[in-house]
Design a protein around this nucleic acid. Structure first.
Lengths: 164, 164
DNA sequence: TTACATGCAAACACTTTGCAGCTGA
DNA sequence: TCAGCTGCAAAGTGTTTGCATGTAA
């Protein structure tokens, strides 16, 4: 099975670290060693992650950043527009929001896989609904839940075995 | 300001309690006093609620149902198809799923208000995307976040005052 | 009669916070 | 220099669970 195609990154003029530095400067805050490590690590790969994975990933790669700092920095990065929060389960998952096109998600209830997709109609519908209710529609989350192809196959295999 | 129009309930052949009883019977479980109280209370009004509100609402109306029982029963009611979970914030919110048409939500980031709406295109898009990726698309959540009319007005009032 | 449910308290999982010492600008 | 940051441990918050007792069928 080929992995689902990743969406192509957007062209952005500043690097994530620069964008973060800018945000911090405006608020009179500092770009520390730990914050830089976090931004670098996060934007080094494009995947969904949570606070816990971040702590252990960094620990394994030799950089120790405390759990509290991870949580504090994640909040800053969301405020800075670098990350977006996804609340699919009890723990908060994050994804890139900077240098990456807006998109929606399919979530497999079997294995937890998240697949991203783009669909331009959604945004139009969002505006229509907002107008209709007098809302200023700033953003949206559209999450399709169901079974991914792998899980569907696994299930039908299991059923066949049960019949023997 | 008139409240947003509620969606009209669907015609259903069984009452929520009957539907729950049926579900419990199949699994060899029991319809207890507490479970009946919870179902009655929940389907007595149509609103979004969380476990905590349920505990205190019931306490105020004289029926004591323990927090653990509330959590356990909510899970059962979700499994039974009576309720749906919404994860808008840290705590899990619930809404009617039985005898109520499927719909989506607008969530005001100012005051937390939830407004329901129906839009038939969404479901069609959900199927299209599912087909495209080989997913069996069972369900979806579409949440528009933004500012409700009241919060927009309150904000513009505040701005005017700031200028004085 | 008895398998299942309840309430309590304790455990759990995730996240936030107070504080003493450290550090980037 | 010193406001702001870090790590630690402790506290919060929301939810789940083990167990003795209670109860629907």
């Amino acid at each position: 099975m080929t992995p689902p195609p990743e969406l192509a990154p957007l062209e952005v003029s500043e690097s994530p670290v620069d964008k973060f530095r800018e945000y911090l400067e405006i608020r009179g805050e500092k770009l520390t060693e730990q914050r830089r490590k976090l931004v670098d690590h996060i934007f080094n790969s494009h995947k969904h992650f949570d606070a816990d994975e971040l702590v252990s990933d960094l620990r394994h790669s030799g950089s120790r950043v405390s759990r509290s700092t991870v949580y504090r920095t994640l909040r800053l990065m969301v405020d800075a527009g670098l990350l977006r929060e996804l609340r699919l389960t009890n723990r908060t998952a994050y994804e890139h929001n900077y240098g990456y096109p807006s998109h929606d998600h399919m979530h497999c209830t079997g294995c937890g896989t998240i697949v991203e997709f783009r669909n331009d109609s959604i945004r139009r519908i969002r505006e229509e609904i907002g107008d209709q209710f007098g809302f200023r529609a700033d953003n949206h989350r559209f999450i399709i839940t169901g079974m991914c192809p792998e899980c569907l196959r696994a299930r039908s295999r299991r059923r066949k075995l049960d019949q023997i």
